[in-house]
Design a protein around this nucleic acid. Structure first.
Lengths: 239, 239
DNA sequence: TGATCGGGTTGATCTCAATCAAGGACAACA
DNA sequence: TGTTGTCCTTGATTGAGATCAACCCGATCA
């Protein structure tokens, strides 16, 4: 299946001033290696809604997110959907060792990625323990996040789910230097619902309730946490 | 916190005929390396119910499961519990890169493990890309399993959850050469409930329903799949 | 022999979130 | 300017699974 690259694929020559540099896998590389890796990669751009890759397809490429947000999701045959995560700048998609994509990924808003052929990336990483360790670290962090999300899905109320999601999103944004008073939520209500194991109506009602209770304030451009301690308590599962 | 080692910790000298060899990280090592790794490890044994390590504790050791089953779980402050997985022979616990244990682990029945100091294991792995790649592969597989479990927790009915769990358990057992007509379920109903985001009553009722419908048959020693296609259909989310 | 206990099952009832249904806000566009 | 479509919100009702409660069964042990 042809992936829908809308932008031009251009060889990346600008790794040294890439904004995602500090938190992506590239953080493990020195200048020379960086230049070498750039030779193997190309920058690709996807417009909002475009599918970067689809579940179960043979994974011939790996990606490092450069800018934008992606939703990563799995579908059941009857089209029930579970969003297993949102990818942000610095996230790596397409771990070596798994021949097929485990989930589908599509762009929420415009997204740019560094694309590598899995094969050449594997050759490049082959004898670079530093890079391999970095990948283990990223995979471990992702795994920890997945396990935390299992607790949310299996054992928490709608209100706790929303609060947890907001706190987690805030932390991820601040982790990539995008923290701020007003927190952008690029994904739609339906995406949030499919991420938290809720329906869109319950998500909407719960946002309304949190707003009524003075915990958050919603804007077209995002959400502000008014009562952070309360949100954090809900998120931690206290009360 | 002192971990409760009930058995004697003995240096492992028998890696070459270890039963978990084929699917554990050691599969990536040659004879010499195996002997070298054995020098760094010791065999530890835990009796049923014993805690191998606890969530949030500093992780000074890594483990490779040699025999038995463990439940891996996270607790909320009010003692709600989510079992994030069950560990079987060959599973690796305590990835490098994460300073603390992300979950607690305790023995279901008697368990034996190879224990490594994280530090010495890291040194050993340092310049063995083969081993590092193997760990990425295992981490990736674990991540894929976690994501599959998110679909289960977020988007499936009780009956589908139980069927999925049984099919998944069967596949894992057969993956380590423990497949068979009657499938042992070492964990209790409460463990299954806390794994699937259900209550013990719903688990019990659903087992009864599946038995009434001729899909499974339960014994003290385990479960037999009578109508495998039906169970697989439920597990896949068809109907 | 009976008491106790842990684990499991089953029934009655309740509740939280799903479902069904309607309408509002806003942008794109003819 | 009205029309259409997307996204979101809110209300009414339903239902799957939680909760509450009772009981069963086999093991252990006095």
């Amino acid at each position: 299946m042809k992936i829908s690259v809308l932008g031009e694929g251009t060889r990346c020559r600008l790794c040294h001033d890439c904004t995602a540099r500090g938190f992506a896998i590239c953080a493990a590389l020195d200048k020379t290696e960086l230049r070498e890796l750039a030779q193997l990669s190309r920058h690709v751009r996807f417009e909002s809604g475009a599918t970067v890759f689809a579940q179960a397809n043979i994974a011939t490429s790996s990606f490092s997110v450069h800018a934008g947000t992606l939703r990563l999701y799995k579908l059941l045959p009857d089209s029930r959907r579970q969003i297993v995560g949102f990818a942000l700048p610095g996230d790596f998609l397409g771990l070596p060792g798994l021949p097929r994509h485990e989930f589908s990924a599509d762009a929420i808003g415009r997204v740019t990625l560094c694309q590598f052929s899995k094969e050449s990336f594997a050759t490049f990483a082959e004898n670079r323990p530093q890079l391999l360790r970095r990948m283990i670290e990223l995979a471990g962090r992702e795994l920890a996040r997945a396990q935390e999300h299992m607790v949310l899905l299996g054992r928490r109320s709608a209100e706790e789910k929303i609060a947890s999601f907001l706190i987690g999103w805030r932390d991820r944004l601040s982790g990539i230097g995008r923290g701020g008073e007003i927190m952008p939520l690029p994904m739609k209500r339906l995406d949030i619902a499919d991420h938290l194991g809720l329906t869109i109506e319950t998500v909407s009602r719960t946002f309304s309730k949190l707003e009524r209770d003075g915990v958050i304030q919603t804007f077209a451009s995002g959400v502000v946490l008014l009562d952070t301690p309360r949100a954090e308590a809900l998120s931690a599962g206290i009360s």
